[in-house]
């Protein structure tokens, strides 16, 4: 296993000594921000890794500009769980998340899946193709517990204000036509160049009312079925940037003195 080496990736906090049991080639990577809630992500990753027989790699993202020196506190729960899992822990600046995960992916070889508890991290990593990204969410079934989400949890804020504005605009357009319907009909059915009037009207209504209708269904919770529940990918990106390591060359050693018979002299 090549040790991760990247200008953006700081060395393991505890070094290779943190590797406790076995040499598990398959790993899961947990990526979270440096905060108290990060402990729950780590403990979940360690427990999951233990159950699956995977090694665990923890990557903590530090706020940009914060000095990187110093070890992270290891909580009792982590210390206990790490006894069973093959665990490595790294830190990297948040702005270099993709570079850091890429380096880990290349150097540790087989990162099978990535866990995170952050929408931002999921979004950033989904753009890359290192491994499937799974978002874990808080559950009330167990205090402090977490579980794998079965659907993307990233949801845009409900567009209530926008819907109201578009609804009002649509209502205004309808009122403008039906207020003097007779005069409008006389004007709109003259034919010829007046054909522009009904066509422009339906275009205007379709933009306002179409956007209103779309937002309305979203507000009511009726949305398209997501086709991709996890951002699966092949590690094409990682392969593309794979660094070549120099092959050891076979060399023959010939003793220049093997034919010299010293005794004969």
């Amino acid at each position: 296993m090549r040790q991760p080496n990247h200008p953006y990736l700081y060395p393991p906090l505890d070094g290779p000594d943190r590797v406790v049991s076995g040499d598990r080639s398959r790993r899961l990577l947990a990526v979270g921000f440096e905060c108290p809630a990060n402990t729950q992500l780590k403990s979940h990753a360690l427990e999951l890794g233990t159950r699956m027989g995977y090694g665990v790699v923890l990557l903590t993202l530090t706020p940009d500009g914060v000095p990187q020196a110093g070890a992270l506190p290891v909580t009792p729960i982590l210390a206990h769980a790490s006894a069973a899992a093959n665990c490595l822990e790294f830190r990297a600046p948040a702005r270099n998340i993709c570079a850091a995960v890429g380096e880990l992916s290349r150097s540790l070889k087989r990162i099978e899946l990535i866990l995170t508890d952050s929408d931002t991290i999921q979004e950033r990593l989904s753009e890359t193709e290192f491994a499937p990204v799974f978002h874990i969410i808080q559950t009330n079934l167990q205090p402090g517990g977490k579980r794998m989400s079965s659907a993307p949890t990233t949801q845009a804020a409900k567009p209530i204000g926008k819907t109201l504005v578009l609804g009002a605009l649509t209502a205004a357009l309808y009122a403008a036509v039906f207020w003097k319907a007779e005069a409008v009909m006389n004007l709109f059915t003259r034919g010829g160049i007046y054909a522009v009037l009904p066509l422009a009207t339906v275009f205007a209504v379709s933009f306002a009312h179409g956007a209103f209708a779309s937002n309305l269904w979203s507000l009511l919770g009726i949305q398209a079925k997501p086709t991709v529940e996890a951002h699966k990918s092949v590690s094409a990106g990682a392969r593309a940037t794979k660094t070549k390591s120099a092959r050891p060359r076979a060399r023959a050693y010939v003793n220049p003195f093997h034919n010299i018979d010293l005794k004969s002299k």
């Binding site: 036509v177 039906f178 709109f188 003259r190 034919g191 054909a195 009904p198 339906v202």
Partner: peptide, 16 residues
């Protein structure tokens, strides 16, 4: 529309 046959009232109600 150039023949003046579009009833804009019907069109807008259906479009709603």
């Amino acid at each position: 529309a150039m023949h003046g046959m579009v009833d804009i009232r019907l069109t807008l109600i259906i479009l709603a």
